[in-house]
Design a binder for these strands. Structure first.
Lengths: 395, 395
DNA sequence: TTGAATTATGTCATGGCTGACAGATTTACC
DNA sequence: GGTAAATCTGTCAGCCATGACATAATTCAA
């Protein structure tokens, strides 16, 4: 059966085996030629050629019609056969569980969000996830046997063994082992990583960081987080807490933060802080989206709010830049929808606080600042990516 | 000829070839058995066995006498043949050039420092380096043909191609290409990396980080710098400026720093800042070493000076820890000689400012803070390591 | 002293990746 | 329309790392 073949090829081998690398290259970008794969994986063309013909014989890879305008013999475009399997990405959020269903060619087939009370229990989560997945497969008339695995994006630090750490932002989940919680119910391979690392993975595989080996993802949502990718690998940190930019202490005498410290960056540039100030100004409840809309429509007050957040973010990134010195910053999360209203002051503030100034470098070497491609679905897409890339598997 | 064999084996192959990995394992640790090498390199025992017998036939590797107390057949200890070649590490410092001569088994044969006027020219440096190396080889009756390569540790950011960046702390060297400057004079392979990266390499190969894949080196010298090692690789950053912890802005309204920003960490915890305050107290010129001695002898004033520096350093490292979350911090540089007088307040301050508190973790998962093994010779030893490891070669 | 357990070393057939070669298909230019 | 250049694809002998096997050398316990 096809799915078993795919599972074998994807999972029963070394993560770094040539086959796995080819499949990863295919699952990353849409339609690619054999020689493109050879270049991006570093494998010999002959190797890729052989592997591709195997995969085509098993019907896991199909040739796609494309017109390539260039010189020379036109390349055959290959793509994973969307029929070959499906995977699910699930976000275990603070007050919601979100589920994305995609095929192996990473086409999104469904994407649903289920609000939950805060501090929901693991038992409740397993029921909700199982129920949602079953319904999705029924609705779309898909065979559950085609599900290759479920990836979890977790809102909080995660130990490498898949245990949620006590310091998590999901307090009721401290010490919970994801594999033993979900595997018996789902009966499928389980993958998991930190929410921010998933977001970075999504940008690497299909987004603003495609083909980039080193970058910093900076996420301005209700909280502030991010991820560091170096040499193509997401840094996890010894406690799974690398990239927690939101809790850099930038004002030791500043206001108290929910983490127990004072003056964390998050207090100055999170969407929560922006919304809270906006509510004072409007005299009523509001949302990030509304603030961004109002600012885009010319309201200078809200523009200033966004600019102040950008200023603080740039100061934080200046520190990050002095330490990591990455060539690319991807600004993501709800606030990033503000676009240049946020990015322009952010860049200016970065330049002011960073060690290396624009004049010290060629234009090309100066770090780039771009917004992410998946601003609010990056975690779930990254969780799908975990399954396709076979990274972060819990065993 | 032996040296040509070694050069061939070390350099004419891929950096990641099995032979290179075996040689690296040998050059790293003193005497190792075949199976130890197999374990640390991940190669098969049979592969290591074959390679070692080749190397022994070429007389590049010798068996060493050791008693291994363990169970089972005793291992044969192997070591690079010290007679097989020599290498030189050179520090291009702010106001000195320091040169270390070592054999391939990383025994230090000589170590000299030559003070120079600040802003010495590249021409002057080439003359000084050449002259010093020639003299050393003459004094020790060593053949110059045995010199395998010269590694340079550079005080400032270095582009990957070996060009010293304009933003360097060696202003007269901006834009200078190290390879074309030194290669014609020395007629040997040239290796180079940032001073701090060399220091990290020394600790990885022979020091406090031996066998550790992830750590942060934090260096408190006249300036404050460091390096980040993740997944066994030193992060260089897109402009060679990763690990510049000294220029994290921690007080945006603080005093001016030589880098052009305000309130850099370096202003609060560098040896220069400590010495400057100590001079005010003593009413005369002094040195780091003297301050450390006085404090160790019980002077509470100087103890407080060191504690304040540790406090500031811990605050900086708290930020670094929130971002990188490494399992190990190696505190190095002149100030680190103060030992616990510096480390105790540093740890306390880290705990106060870090995101993850001691109570959140098992004791084993909490980051360790140790002093480096090479407190003031790490750059030169690392430059030697560049040659032995064949990393950072300029071509 | 002997046998079991443990660990290290050396040899060899196997298999997988590679580089070189040959062939295919298009564009550019005369 | 023909030729050169460029780019892609597929095939195959050769090489190199591997894993399995056989062997060696030590400790420990009976």
């Amino acid at each position: 059966m096809i799915n078993d073949d795919l599972k074998g090829l994807l999972y029963e081998r070394e993560v770094d085996s040539p086959i796995a690398r080819v499949v990863r290259a295919l699952s990353g970008h849409g339609a690619v030629s054999a020689s493109q794969i050879a270049r991006s994986t570093g494998l010999a063309r002959s190797t890729v050629s052989t592997i591709l013909s195997d995969l085509k014989r098993s019907n896991l890879v199909v040739e796609v019609e494309t017109r390539s305008p260039g010189l020379g013999r036109p390349a055959l475009a290959h793509s994973l056969n969307p029929e070959a399997g499906t995977c699910v990405g699930a976000l275990l959020g603070l007050d919601e569980i979100r589920i994305t269903l995609a095929d192996v060619a990473h086409n999104v087939l469904a994407d649903i969000s289920m609000p939950l009370e805060r501090d929901y229990s693991p038992e409740r989560a397993t029921r909700v996830v199982r129920h949602a997945i079953e319904n999705l497969y029924k609705e779309h008339s898909l065979p559950y046997s085609g599900l290759l695995g479920v990836g979890f994006a977790v809102s909080g630090p995660l130990a490498p063994n898949g245990r949620i750490m006590r310091a998590s932002v999901l307090p009721t989940w401290g010490g919970i082992d994801l594999k033993s919680t979900f595997a018996p119910v789902l009966q499928k391979p389980i993958f998991a990583d930190n929410e921010s690392n998933c977001a970075a993975l999504a940008e690497v595989m299909w987004g603003a960081a495609a083909g980039v080996e080193d970058f910093v993802l900076f996420k301005l949502d209700l909280g502030v987080g991010g991820a560091i990718v170096a040499n193509g690998k997401v840094l996890s940190g010894s406690s799974g807490a690398a990239g927690e930019f939101g809790h850099m202490v930038i004002e030791p005498q500043g206001p108290l933060c929910r983490c127990g410290n004072r003056g964390c960056l998050e207090l100055y540039c999170s969407a929560a802080s922006v919304v809270s100030l906006a509510q004072q100004r409007l005299g009523r409840a509001t949302s990030v989206a509304e603030v961004v809309t109002l600012a885009s429509n010319g309201d200078v007050g809200f523009q200033r709010l966004l600019a102040d957040a950008g200023e603080a973010a740039g100061r934080g990134l200046g520190i990050v830049g002095s330490i990591i010195n990455p060539p690319l910053f991807i600004i993501s999360g709800g606030l990033a929808k503000a676009g240049e209203l946020l990015l322009a002051p952010l860049r200016a503030s970065y330049e002011k606080h960073a060690l290396i100034k624009r004049q010290d470098l060629d234009e090309a070497a100066y770090p780039r600042f771009v917004t992410g491609r998946f601003l609010d679905n990056d975690n779930c897409m990254g969780a799908v990516g975990l399954v396709l890339r076979h990274s972060g598997r819990l065993t």
